[in-house]
Write a protein that binds this DNA or RNA. Structure first.
Lengths: 203, 203
DNA sequence: CAGTTTAGCGTCCGATCGTTCGGACGCTAA
DNA sequence: TTAGCGTCCGAACGATCGGACGCTAAACTG
Protein backbone atom coordinates (compact mmCIF):
# COMPACT_ATOMS: atom_id res chain seq x y z
CA UNK A 1 0.00 0.00 0.00
CA UNK A 2 2.46 2.62 1.13
CA UNK A 3 5.97 2.79 -0.31
CA UNK A 4 8.77 2.85 2.23
CA UNK A 5 11.32 5.63 1.93
CA UNK A 6 15.05 5.28 2.08
CA UNK A 7 17.12 6.98 4.73
CA UNK A 8 18.19 9.66 2.27
CA UNK A 9 14.60 10.27 1.29
CA UNK A 10 13.69 10.59 4.94
CA UNK A 11 15.65 13.80 5.19
CA UNK A 12 13.74 15.03 2.20
CA UNK A 13 10.45 14.08 3.83
CA UNK A 14 11.50 16.05 6.87
CA UNK A 15 12.18 19.15 4.83
CA UNK A 16 8.88 18.75 3.01
CA UNK A 17 7.13 18.63 6.38
CA UNK A 18 8.97 21.73 7.53
CA UNK A 19 8.27 23.68 4.35
CA UNK A 20 4.61 22.96 4.67
CA UNK A 21 4.79 23.59 8.42
CA UNK A 22 6.23 27.05 7.90
CA UNK A 23 3.52 27.73 5.33
CA UNK A 24 0.71 26.68 7.64
CA UNK A 25 2.19 28.24 10.78
CA UNK A 26 2.54 31.65 9.15
CA UNK A 27 -1.20 31.64 8.56
CA UNK A 28 -2.64 29.67 11.47
CA UNK A 29 0.08 30.38 14.02
CA UNK A 30 2.56 28.04 15.59
CA UNK A 31 -0.07 26.63 17.90
CA UNK A 32 -2.63 26.33 15.15
CA UNK A 33 -0.08 24.19 13.37
CA UNK A 34 -1.72 20.86 14.07
CA UNK A 35 -0.12 17.44 13.71
CA UNK A 36 -3.24 15.91 12.21
CA UNK A 37 -3.90 18.75 9.81
CA UNK A 38 -0.30 18.85 8.66
CA UNK A 39 -0.24 15.08 8.18
CA UNK A 40 -3.46 15.15 6.17
CA UNK A 41 -2.14 17.97 3.99
CA UNK A 42 0.94 15.92 3.20
CA UNK A 43 -0.90 12.61 2.79
CA UNK A 44 0.84 10.99 5.71
CA UNK A 45 -0.27 9.57 9.01
CA UNK A 46 0.06 11.56 12.21
CA UNK A 47 2.44 9.02 13.71
CA UNK A 48 4.57 8.94 10.60
CA UNK A 49 4.96 12.68 10.74
CA UNK A 50 5.50 12.92 14.46
CA UNK A 51 8.18 10.23 14.22
CA UNK A 52 10.48 12.80 12.64
CA UNK A 53 10.29 15.12 15.62
CA UNK A 54 8.97 13.35 18.68
CA UNK A 55 6.72 16.09 19.96
CA UNK A 56 4.82 19.11 18.75
CA UNK A 57 7.19 21.46 20.54
CA UNK A 58 10.20 20.00 18.73
CA UNK A 59 8.29 20.40 15.48
CA UNK A 60 7.55 24.03 16.34
CA UNK A 61 11.20 24.70 17.09
CA UNK A 62 12.21 23.13 13.78
CA UNK A 63 9.62 25.26 12.00
CA UNK A 64 11.01 28.40 13.63
CA UNK A 65 14.50 27.44 12.50
CA UNK A 66 13.27 26.79 8.98
CA UNK A 67 11.48 30.11 8.88
CA UNK A 68 14.65 31.82 10.09
CA UNK A 69 16.52 30.20 7.23
CA UNK A 70 13.97 31.51 4.77
CA UNK A 71 14.25 35.00 6.26
CA UNK A 72 18.03 34.97 6.04
CA UNK A 73 17.86 33.78 2.44
CA UNK A 74 15.20 36.28 1.40
CA UNK A 75 16.49 39.32 3.29
CA UNK A 76 19.98 39.14 4.75
CA UNK A 77 21.55 37.35 1.80
CA UNK A 78 20.22 39.98 -0.59
CA UNK A 79 22.65 42.50 0.85
CA UNK A 80 25.76 40.39 1.32
CA UNK A 81 27.60 41.91 -1.62
CA UNK A 82 26.84 45.49 -0.70
CA UNK A 83 29.43 47.74 0.86
CA UNK A 84 29.14 47.76 4.69
CA UNK A 85 27.76 50.81 6.46
CA UNK A 86 24.98 52.93 5.06
CA UNK A 87 24.81 51.25 1.62
CA UNK A 88 24.45 47.83 3.24
CA UNK A 89 21.90 49.22 5.69
CA UNK A 90 19.85 50.64 2.83
CA UNK A 91 20.03 47.33 0.99
CA UNK A 92 18.92 45.42 4.08
CA UNK A 93 15.94 47.70 4.59
CA UNK A 94 14.97 47.48 0.94
CA UNK A 95 15.22 43.69 1.09
CA UNK A 96 13.14 43.76 4.28
CA UNK A 97 10.44 45.82 2.58
CA UNK A 98 10.57 43.61 -0.49
CA UNK A 99 10.20 40.54 1.71
CA UNK A 100 7.00 42.03 3.09
CA UNK A 101 5.76 43.15 -0.31
CA UNK A 102 6.38 39.82 -2.03
CA UNK A 103 4.61 37.94 0.74
CA UNK A 104 7.40 35.44 1.25
CA UNK A 105 5.26 33.81 3.92
CA UNK A 106 1.60 33.49 3.00
CA UNK A 107 0.52 34.78 6.41
CA UNK A 108 2.76 37.83 6.46
CA UNK A 109 5.97 38.17 8.41
CA UNK A 110 6.45 34.89 10.22
CA UNK A 111 8.26 36.37 13.19
CA UNK A 112 5.89 39.26 13.73
CA UNK A 113 3.10 36.72 14.05
CA UNK A 114 5.20 34.42 16.23
CA UNK A 115 6.05 37.25 18.63
CA UNK A 116 2.41 38.21 19.00
CA UNK A 117 1.53 34.61 19.72
CA UNK A 118 4.33 33.72 22.12
CA UNK A 119 5.38 36.95 23.81
CA UNK A 120 3.28 36.17 26.87
CA UNK A 121 4.23 32.52 27.22
CA UNK A 122 7.43 31.01 28.38
CA UNK A 123 9.36 28.06 27.09
CA UNK A 124 11.74 27.02 24.33
CA UNK A 125 9.59 28.28 21.47
CA UNK A 126 9.44 31.80 22.83
CA UNK A 127 13.18 31.75 23.42
CA UNK A 128 13.85 30.46 19.92
CA UNK A 129 11.78 33.22 18.37
CA UNK A 130 13.43 35.83 20.57
CA UNK A 131 16.87 34.51 19.67
CA UNK A 132 16.22 34.70 15.91
CA UNK A 133 14.93 38.24 16.18
CA UNK A 134 17.88 39.14 18.38
CA UNK A 135 20.32 37.93 15.72
CA UNK A 136 18.58 39.95 13.04
CA UNK A 137 18.57 43.08 15.14
CA UNK A 138 22.20 42.54 16.03
CA UNK A 139 23.09 42.50 12.34
CA UNK A 140 21.09 45.64 11.70
CA UNK A 141 22.53 47.43 14.71
CA UNK A 142 26.04 46.56 13.54
CA UNK A 143 25.45 48.19 10.18
CA UNK A 144 23.81 51.18 11.82
CA UNK A 145 26.86 51.73 14.01
CA UNK A 146 29.19 51.34 11.08
CA UNK A 147 27.24 53.99 9.24
CA UNK A 148 27.08 56.20 12.32
CA UNK A 149 30.82 55.99 12.93
CA UNK A 150 31.42 56.88 9.30
CA UNK A 151 29.16 59.92 9.70
CA UNK A 152 26.85 58.63 6.98
CA UNK A 153 23.62 59.05 8.91
CA UNK A 154 21.46 62.21 9.04
CA UNK A 155 20.51 64.00 12.23
CA UNK A 156 23.93 63.63 13.79
CA UNK A 157 23.51 59.98 14.79
CA UNK A 158 26.74 59.01 16.51
CA UNK A 159 26.05 57.50 19.93
CA UNK A 160 24.83 54.00 20.65
CA UNK A 161 21.71 55.54 22.12
CA UNK A 162 20.97 57.14 18.78
CA UNK A 163 21.65 53.86 17.03
CA UNK A 164 19.15 52.06 19.27
CA UNK A 165 16.66 54.81 18.55
CA UNK A 166 17.10 54.36 14.81
CA UNK A 167 16.77 50.60 15.16
CA UNK A 168 13.56 51.10 17.14
CA UNK A 169 12.07 53.34 14.47
CA UNK A 170 13.13 51.20 11.54
CA UNK A 171 11.54 48.21 13.21
CA UNK A 172 8.38 50.22 13.69
CA UNK A 173 8.24 51.03 10.00
CA UNK A 174 8.33 47.34 9.13
CA UNK A 175 5.76 46.42 11.74
CA UNK A 176 3.48 49.14 10.44
CA UNK A 177 4.02 47.89 6.90
CA UNK A 178 3.14 44.34 7.88
CA UNK A 179 0.10 45.63 9.75
CA UNK A 180 -1.21 47.64 6.79
CA UNK A 181 -0.54 44.88 4.30
CA UNK A 182 -2.24 42.18 6.35
CA UNK A 183 -5.18 44.01 7.90
CA UNK A 184 -5.99 46.63 5.27
CA UNK A 185 -4.45 44.83 2.30
CA UNK A 186 -3.16 48.29 1.44
CA UNK A 187 -0.35 48.00 -1.11
CA UNK A 188 0.26 51.73 -0.87
CA UNK A 189 1.84 51.06 2.51
CA UNK A 190 4.92 49.77 0.68
CA UNK A 191 5.62 53.25 -0.66
CA UNK A 192 5.02 54.74 2.74
CA UNK A 193 7.54 52.34 4.22
CA UNK A 194 10.11 53.32 1.58
CA UNK A 195 9.52 56.99 2.27
CA UNK A 196 9.86 56.43 6.01
CA UNK A 197 13.12 54.54 5.57
CA UNK A 198 14.42 57.19 3.20
CA UNK A 199 13.72 59.84 5.79
CA UNK A 200 15.34 57.85 8.60
CA UNK A 201 18.47 57.02 6.63
CA UNK A 202 18.65 60.19 4.56
CA UNK A 203 17.35 60.60 1.06
CA UNK B 1 -25.15 24.78 46.62
CA UNK B 2 -24.90 27.68 44.24
CA UNK B 3 -27.13 30.74 44.66
CA UNK B 4 -29.34 31.60 41.70
CA UNK B 5 -28.98 35.06 40.21
CA UNK B 6 -31.76 37.50 39.57
CA UNK B 7 -32.43 39.03 36.18
CA UNK B 8 -30.66 42.24 37.15
CA UNK B 9 -27.66 40.32 38.35
CA UNK B 10 -27.46 38.54 35.02
CA UNK B 11 -26.28 41.67 33.29
CA UNK B 12 -23.61 41.94 35.92
CA UNK B 13 -22.61 38.34 35.35
CA UNK B 14 -22.27 39.11 31.67
CA UNK B 15 -19.94 42.00 32.30
CA UNK B 16 -17.90 39.91 34.72
CA UNK B 17 -17.52 37.29 32.01
CA UNK B 18 -16.45 39.92 29.51
CA UNK B 19 -13.97 41.57 31.84
CA UNK B 20 -12.34 38.26 32.51
CA UNK B 21 -12.61 37.35 28.82
CA UNK B 22 -10.72 40.47 27.76
CA UNK B 23 -8.09 39.70 30.36
CA UNK B 24 -7.61 36.12 29.17
CA UNK B 25 -7.88 36.93 25.45
CA UNK B 26 -5.17 39.57 25.63
CA UNK B 27 -2.78 36.91 26.87
CA UNK B 28 -3.95 33.70 25.20
CA UNK B 29 -5.53 35.21 22.12
CA UNK B 30 -9.15 35.32 21.07
CA UNK B 31 -9.04 31.70 19.96
CA UNK B 32 -7.18 30.62 23.07
CA UNK B 33 -10.06 32.11 25.00
CA UNK B 34 -11.72 28.84 25.91
CA UNK B 35 -15.26 28.40 27.16
CA UNK B 36 -14.22 25.75 29.66
CA UNK B 37 -11.23 27.66 30.95
CA UNK B 38 -13.19 30.88 31.27
CA UNK B 39 -16.03 29.10 33.05
CA UNK B 40 -13.62 27.43 35.47
CA UNK B 41 -11.91 30.75 36.18
CA UNK B 42 -15.25 32.30 37.07
CA UNK B 43 -16.57 29.30 38.97
CA UNK B 44 -19.43 28.65 36.61
CA UNK B 45 -20.43 25.93 34.22
CA UNK B 46 -19.62 26.04 30.52
CA UNK B 47 -23.29 25.96 29.58
CA UNK B 48 -24.20 28.68 32.05
CA UNK B 49 -21.55 30.90 30.57
CA UNK B 50 -22.34 30.14 26.95
CA UNK B 51 -26.01 30.80 27.65
CA UNK B 52 -25.20 34.50 27.75
CA UNK B 53 -23.82 34.52 24.23
CA UNK B 54 -24.95 31.47 22.29
CA UNK B 55 -21.68 30.68 20.59
CA UNK B 56 -17.99 31.24 21.00
CA UNK B 57 -17.93 33.64 18.07
CA UNK B 58 -20.56 35.87 19.66
CA UNK B 59 -18.50 35.80 22.85
CA UNK B 60 -15.41 36.81 20.90
CA UNK B 61 -17.27 39.69 19.28
CA UNK B 62 -18.49 40.86 22.68
CA UNK B 63 -14.95 40.63 24.03
CA UNK B 64 -13.66 42.75 21.14
CA UNK B 65 -16.33 45.35 21.87
CA UNK B 66 -15.44 45.36 25.53
CA UNK B 67 -11.75 45.76 24.75
CA UNK B 68 -12.58 48.64 22.44
CA UNK B 69 -14.43 50.29 25.28
CA UNK B 70 -11.41 49.91 27.52
CA UNK B 71 -9.16 51.39 24.83
CA UNK B 72 -11.43 54.38 24.34
CA UNK B 73 -11.59 54.94 28.08
CA UNK B 74 -7.85 54.58 28.61
CA UNK B 75 -6.63 56.45 25.53
CA UNK B 76 -9.16 58.52 23.60
CA UNK B 77 -10.95 59.88 26.65
CA UNK B 78 -7.68 61.10 28.13
CA UNK B 79 -7.44 63.74 25.43
CA UNK B 80 -11.06 64.90 25.18
CA UNK B 81 -10.45 68.18 26.96
CA UNK B 82 -7.39 69.11 24.97
CA UNK B 83 -7.51 71.71 22.22
CA UNK B 84 -8.02 70.09 18.78
CA UNK B 85 -5.16 69.94 16.31
CA UNK B 86 -1.58 69.42 17.33
CA UNK B 87 -2.13 69.68 21.11
CA UNK B 88 -4.85 67.04 20.95
CA UNK B 89 -2.69 64.89 18.70
CA UNK B 90 0.18 65.09 21.17
CA UNK B 91 -2.15 64.19 24.03
CA UNK B 92 -3.52 61.22 22.11
CA UNK B 93 -0.04 59.89 21.38
CA UNK B 94 1.05 60.37 24.96
CA UNK B 95 -2.07 58.55 26.17
CA UNK B 96 -1.34 55.81 23.64
CA UNK B 97 2.20 55.41 24.93
CA UNK B 98 0.99 55.49 28.51
CA UNK B 99 -1.57 52.80 27.70
CA UNK B 100 1.27 50.60 26.50
CA UNK B 101 3.51 51.48 29.44
CA UNK B 102 0.88 50.88 32.09
CA UNK B 103 -0.01 47.51 30.61
CA UNK B 104 -3.73 48.18 30.52
CA UNK B 105 -4.18 44.71 29.08
CA UNK B 106 -2.03 42.04 30.74
CA UNK B 107 -1.02 40.62 27.35
CA UNK B 108 -0.03 43.92 25.78
CA UNK B 109 -2.08 45.86 23.26
CA UNK B 110 -5.25 43.85 22.73
CA UNK B 111 -5.75 44.95 19.15
CA UNK B 112 -2.18 44.41 18.03
CA UNK B 113 -2.50 40.82 19.19
CA UNK B 114 -5.95 40.46 17.66
CA UNK B 115 -4.73 41.69 14.27
CA UNK B 116 -1.84 39.26 14.26
CA UNK B 117 -4.23 36.44 15.08
CA UNK B 118 -7.07 37.26 12.71
CA UNK B 119 -5.53 39.10 9.79
CA UNK B 120 -5.41 35.95 7.67
CA UNK B 121 -8.86 34.66 8.52
CA UNK B 122 -12.19 35.94 7.42
CA UNK B 123 -15.40 36.38 9.29
CA UNK B 124 -17.15 38.66 11.73
CA UNK B 125 -14.34 38.71 14.29
CA UNK B 126 -11.78 39.93 11.80
CA UNK B 127 -14.20 42.58 10.58
CA UNK B 128 -14.96 43.71 14.12
CA UNK B 129 -11.28 44.11 14.91
CA UNK B 130 -10.67 45.94 11.64
CA UNK B 131 -13.62 48.25 12.30
CA UNK B 132 -12.38 49.20 15.77
CA UNK B 133 -8.91 49.95 14.48
CA UNK B 134 -10.41 51.88 11.61
CA UNK B 135 -12.33 54.11 14.00
CA UNK B 136 -9.21 54.80 16.03
CA UNK B 137 -7.18 55.66 12.97
CA UNK B 138 -9.97 57.86 11.68
CA UNK B 139 -9.86 59.88 14.88
CA UNK B 140 -6.09 60.19 14.68
CA UNK B 141 -6.15 61.12 11.01
CA UNK B 142 -8.72 63.80 11.74
CA UNK B 143 -6.47 65.44 14.32
CA UNK B 144 -3.48 65.12 12.02
CA UNK B 145 -5.31 66.95 9.25
CA UNK B 146 -6.48 69.64 11.62
CA UNK B 147 -2.90 70.17 12.70
CA UNK B 148 -1.68 70.05 9.11
CA UNK B 149 -4.22 72.62 7.93
CA UNK B 150 -3.21 74.89 10.80
CA UNK B 151 0.41 74.56 9.75
CA UNK B 152 1.35 73.11 13.13
CA UNK B 153 3.27 70.12 11.84
CA UNK B 154 7.00 70.04 10.97
CA UNK B 155 8.37 69.09 7.59
CA UNK B 156 5.70 70.94 5.67
CA UNK B 157 2.96 68.36 6.14
CA UNK B 158 -0.07 69.69 4.36
CA UNK B 159 -1.46 67.14 1.93
CA UNK B 160 -3.58 64.12 2.78
CA UNK B 161 -0.76 61.96 1.46
CA UNK B 162 1.56 63.46 4.03
CA UNK B 163 -1.07 62.93 6.70
CA UNK B 164 -1.37 59.24 5.79
CA UNK B 165 2.41 59.00 5.90
CA UNK B 166 2.49 60.48 9.39
CA UNK B 167 -0.30 58.15 10.52
CA UNK B 168 1.69 55.21 9.14
CA UNK B 169 4.82 56.18 11.03
CA UNK B 170 3.05 56.99 14.28
CA UNK B 171 1.40 53.60 14.17
CA UNK B 172 4.79 52.01 13.58
CA UNK B 173 6.20 53.69 16.67
CA UNK B 174 3.45 52.18 18.80
CA UNK B 175 3.81 48.74 17.24
CA UNK B 176 7.54 48.87 17.85
CA UNK B 177 6.90 49.94 21.43
CA UNK B 178 4.52 47.06 22.01
CA UNK B 179 7.00 44.70 20.40
CA UNK B 180 9.90 45.80 22.60
CA UNK B 181 7.83 45.79 25.76
CA UNK B 182 6.40 42.34 25.20
CA UNK B 183 9.29 40.45 23.68
CA UNK B 184 12.30 42.14 25.24
CA UNK B 185 10.54 43.50 28.33
CA UNK B 186 12.58 46.60 27.60
CA UNK B 187 11.13 49.55 29.51
CA UNK B 188 13.61 51.87 27.81
CA UNK B 189 11.49 51.51 24.69
CA UNK B 190 8.97 53.88 26.24
CA UNK B 191 11.48 56.72 26.06
CA UNK B 192 12.36 55.78 22.52
CA UNK B 193 8.69 55.95 21.58
CA UNK B 194 8.38 59.40 23.15
CA UNK B 195 11.45 60.61 21.29
CA UNK B 196 10.13 59.22 18.02
CA UNK B 197 6.76 60.90 18.49
CA UNK B 198 8.46 64.16 19.45
CA UNK B 199 10.45 64.05 16.24
CA UNK B 200 7.41 63.21 14.12
CA UNK B 201 5.24 65.92 15.64
CA UNK B 202 7.95 68.48 16.32
CA UNK B 203 9.72 68.95 19.62
C1' DC C 1 23.31 -13.56 1.35
C1' DA C 2 21.53 -12.66 6.30
C1' DG C 3 20.90 -9.20 9.86
C1' DT C 4 20.08 -4.53 11.46
C1' DT C 5 18.06 -0.22 11.08
C1' DT C 6 14.26 2.79 10.45
C1' DA C 7 10.50 5.42 7.83
C1' DG C 8 6.05 5.26 7.98
C1' DC C 9 1.45 3.17 9.05
C1' DG C 10 -2.70 1.75 11.80
C1' DT C 11 -4.72 1.83 16.04
C1' DC C 12 -5.79 3.40 20.40
C1' DC C 13 -5.75 6.54 24.39
C1' DG C 14 -7.10 10.39 27.67
C1' DA C 15 -7.97 15.19 27.53
C1' DT C 16 -10.29 18.99 25.85
C1' DC C 17 -12.74 21.49 22.43
C1' DG C 18 -17.60 23.88 21.30
C1' DT C 19 -22.25 22.85 21.62
C1' DT C 20 -26.86 20.83 22.89
C1' DC C 21 -30.28 19.44 26.09
C1' DG C 22 -33.43 18.82 30.05
C1' DG C 23 -34.25 20.39 34.28
C1' DA C 24 -33.71 22.93 38.86
C1' DC C 25 -34.34 27.20 40.92
C1' DG C 26 -35.37 32.31 42.00
C1' DC C 27 -37.70 36.13 40.49
C1' DT C 28 -41.75 38.78 38.83
C1' DA C 29 -46.46 39.61 37.58
C1' DA C 30 -51.13 38.13 37.40
C1' DT D 1 -51.19 31.32 45.09
C1' DT D 2 -49.39 30.33 40.88
C1' DA D 3 -47.82 30.56 36.02
C1' DG D 4 -44.10 31.82 33.42
C1' DC D 5 -39.58 33.64 32.41
C1' DG D 6 -34.75 33.78 32.69
C1' DT D 7 -30.39 32.02 34.79
C1' DC D 8 -27.53 28.57 35.50
C1' DC D 9 -26.22 23.73 36.12
C1' DG D 10 -24.86 18.80 35.09
C1' DA D 11 -24.45 15.51 31.69
C1' DA D 12 -23.59 14.13 27.37
C1' DC D 13 -22.48 14.61 22.29
C1' DG D 14 -19.12 14.25 18.35
C1' DA D 15 -14.85 16.07 16.91
C1' DT D 16 -10.18 16.88 17.42
C1' DC D 17 -6.15 17.51 20.03
C1' DG D 18 -1.09 15.57 21.18
C1' DG D 19 0.89 11.45 21.92
C1' DA D 20 2.17 6.09 22.62
C1' DC D 21 2.45 1.60 20.92
C1' DG D 22 3.62 -2.28 17.93
C1' DC D 23 4.01 -3.55 13.38
C1' DT D 24 5.61 -3.97 8.38
C1' DA D 25 8.76 -3.70 4.90
C1' DA D 26 12.22 -1.31 2.41
C1' DA D 27 16.93 0.23 2.66
C1' DC D 28 21.33 -0.17 4.48
C1' DT D 29 25.36 -2.96 6.39
C1' DG D 30 28.22 -6.81 6.78
Amino acid sequence: MSPRRSATEARNTRSVILDRGVHVASVEGLEGLTIGRLATDLGMSKSGLLGHFGSKEVLQLAVVDTAAGVFVHEVSDRATGVEPGLPRLRALCEAWISYMERGVFPGGCFFTAAVAEFDDREGPVREAVARMIGLWRRDLTFQIRLAANAGQLPGGITTDTDADQLMFELYGVMLSLNHSLRLDRDRAAVDRARRAVARLLGA
